[in-house]
Design a protein around this nucleic acid. Sequence first.
DNA 1: CAGTGAGCGAGCTTCCGCTTGACTT
Length: 648
Amino acid sequence: MNVVVVESPAKAKTINKYLGSDYTVLASYGHVRDLPSKNGSVNPDEDFAMIWDMDTKSRQRVNDIAKALKGADKLILATDPDREGEAISWHVLDILREKGALKDKDVARVVFNAITKSAVTEAMENARDLDEDLVEAYLARRALDYLVGFTLSPVLWRKLPGSRSAGRVQSVALRLVCDRELEIEAFKSQEYWTIEADLRTAEDKAFRARLNAVDGKKLGKFDVPAEQDAKTIESAMKEGRYAVESVEAKPAKRNPAAPFTTSTLQQEASRKLGFSSARTMQIAQKLYEGINLDGETTGLITYMRTDGVQIANEAIAEARNVIQDDFGEPYVPGTPRVYKTKAKNAQEAHEAIRPTSLARRPKEVSRVLDDEQFKLYDLIWKRTLASQMESADFERTTVDVVTEGTDSKRFTLRATGQVVVFDGFLKLYQEGRDDDGDEEDGRRLPKMSKGETVGLVKLEPLQHFTEPPPRFTEATLIKRMEELGIGRPSTYTAILTTLRNREYVRMDKKRLIPEDKGRLVTAFLESFFERYVQYDFTANLEEQLDRISAGDLDWKKVLREFWHDFNGAVGETADLRITEVLDALNELLGPHVFPQNEDGSDPRACPNCDDGQLSLKVGKFGAFVGCSNYPECRFTRQFTQDNGEDAG
DNA sequence: CAGTGAGCGAGCTTCCGCTTGACTT
């Protein structure tokens, strides 16, 4: 008898089925130990000694493993093939040794690259020892996160009343939201015009073109800045004869998107189904754990917390069969598609999120799913199948039409069109778009040939204004965090919950809006702990962790160097008076707290007395704006001025 | 859900990442 330890109970069940009755497969349910949430769990003065603690549930689970080991010959640690998985194996092993549950037992570490019978069997034949270097990389990561969070948070409590917490991940996520808000506030909308023309071909077919060049020189976005300029061009163009100068058709190809990871599933479920990331994960968990299908609990999708985009060969083969059956030969590509992850810091311990069997078509399982489960399963099924389908072929056409104006200028108008020659994967699935994607020109242009005269139906100058960047949604923030390597699939939604619970951000119409509290915390960290909220801090840390994993760098050395600089920065804030903190925040948040008055008058002038200057203050209820002539002048106002923008 | 401003000291909060139930309504 052998005892196998994996992380998740659903996985334990599946693997037990593949391994048979000679094996007992038990789940650790994630990390079995952690640093207690109190001071002193990591001690930099004692060479970063760490104290570990087990909760009652974990203790029970480890007892179950120890009990199973009693009559067994071998312990097989089969936690996930990444840094955290290696750490879980190490924790389990360490505890079992302490309990004396391992005498005379063989111990082996095994990693599954996919949860299929062949992958599991093959992995069992390639056991290895625990990777101590990888465990040390984990220890460095864990200690650093604890030290940053449990040192920085108290600094905030003392220096910035009302603030709650800071950390390597949450503070950078918050910074993204706050920096975006500053961009929006600093944004000045700019006017520009385009000249559009409705035209007709010799065969009396309508199409629309836009002024693109004057005297052969391409128009820039702001080359027609005002109505007067547009009108001048319009009247010059109005009387001319219009002729086709060139017709150019080019083939284009579009490939399907990669199968879902946690991050892309959350984005797409938000765009297409309107689910919050928490909702998406709850539903996906249910599909993963299994649905009662004809009296048997069957997992419908693979593991949902993953950053991998590759899928098992068995699944690819099945996808190609389903494509062949449902869509026909032309939709099956010559060779299977292979996807590689682009995400920074990806660990790829799991496959992409896919149906456990592509032959289980959505409509066949719909009777056992509720509405939301069905929608999510349908989305995952389509995305996965489409990822193995043939590319779509287009023909993109560009037509230039020329006319000579009454001012002797030569005006070039351009029309573009796109025709689907072969729909490929688009027959099944097309990825949704975020806020500001370029508009896709799906129109078909009528037949035209070079030299042909076309008739002008209408000239239309159109006014436009540039738009500020949009606020983040949950999904777009998670996308950005993933690009920066901040947070992990298992923590994305937890981070958003933390930012809300701390009252650092609020949600309005699915957009993240920073609260004053959050902006103050960010401004404080940018002023005094700049290095630790830089967008690439985590990426640089990960590089060092990689070197620890490779055995090229000592983990304690990394911690010592980090602590030396970090503790120094903390020390520099020790004597900081609140007034000095406020001076720094006044500087950074000035444009937000004191926006330019429209009449050009001083935005910091006190409206209540002659020579008072307004500035930031903190009281026991948070930040507010007060007058420098206090207590003679008792003027105060709220930190944020309501622009009435929330009404729209 | 109104009122706030310094600084002291009591006593409270706090990190990230891995995994699910066992509580309530």
